[in-house]
């Protein structure tokens, strides 16, 4: 079952240099490196919003925006 409000993963392809760290350490295989050697989201619905990619990215090119429902759940 797909969540109603999935997490949004924004990738700044102008800043991404294609090192592949985000894809290699993603625990849910949400990201892959595409043919142009840039990170690409292939399975956003699997994202658990652990933000490992965002924190590991040496190029500051990834931003994970949690769904409002998840934010609320965490806040409470």
């Amino acid at each position: 079952m797909k969540p109603k409000h999935p997490t949004v993963i924004c990738i700044n392809t102008d800043w991404c240099k294609g090192c592949g760290i985000c894809a290699a350490f993603c625990p849910k295989q949400v990201l892959v490196m595409n043919q142009r050697d840039k990170a690409e989201v292939v399975a956003a619905e699997n994202c658990i919003a652990c933000k490992q990619c965002e924190q590991r990215c040496p190029d500051l090119a990834i931003q994970v925006i949690k769904s409002p429902a998840k934010e609320e759940k965490e806040a409470s």
């Binding site: 102008d14 240099k17 924190q55 590991r56 040496p58 500051l60």
Partner: peptide, 24 residues
């Protein structure tokens, strides 16, 4: 993004350089 000087990005470090992670 509020703490960095975006006009200098993408930075000069090589792909996969650990210094970017330290900056982050």
């Amino acid at each position: 993004q509020d703490y960095i000087r975006e006009r200098f990005f993408p930075h000069i470090w090589c792909p996969g350089c650990g210094h970017g992670t330290v900056l982050n």
